[in-house]
Amino acid sequence: MAEKTILVIDDDIDLVEIIRVTLENQGFKVIDAQTGARGLAMAKEQDPDLILLDVMMGKVDEGFQVAYQLRSDDVTAETPILMLTAVTDQTGFDFDPARDKDFLPVNEFLEKPVSPRDLVDMIRKHLPTSV
């Protein structure tokens, strides 16, 4: 099985490194970006197998904006996106990707702090099986 590439878009460099260690240990290849713009560019260039996206970076809705743009790009339209959130405690409403599919263009929400085991399980669940 070919090495799967995960793109991590998060402005928390420490978290990115922690995730990198976890995922590389599981045999994934990790590429990362600290801004939404950079993340979009990398997604287009390198066509990762899955994208881990932080919900809030510089701006409150930057993660969402990035997700919409990823979905509207031919290269990444079908790429699974897992969104890392700490947003439930900010806005007070719970996301449900199944219920809110129409306006939330992501496959899953992972609430921070995500344990390494859950993270890996979730990535495996959403990775396309046949590439």
């Binding site: 928390d12 922690i18 260690v21 390494p116």
Partner: peptide, 15 residues
């Protein structure tokens, strides 16, 4: 954020 990241870090180290 720092607390979450710290927790992830320690959990990762343990794992």
């Amino acid at each position: 954020s720092p607390v979450n990241t710290a927790q992830s870090g320690v959990e990762t180290a343990l794992e």
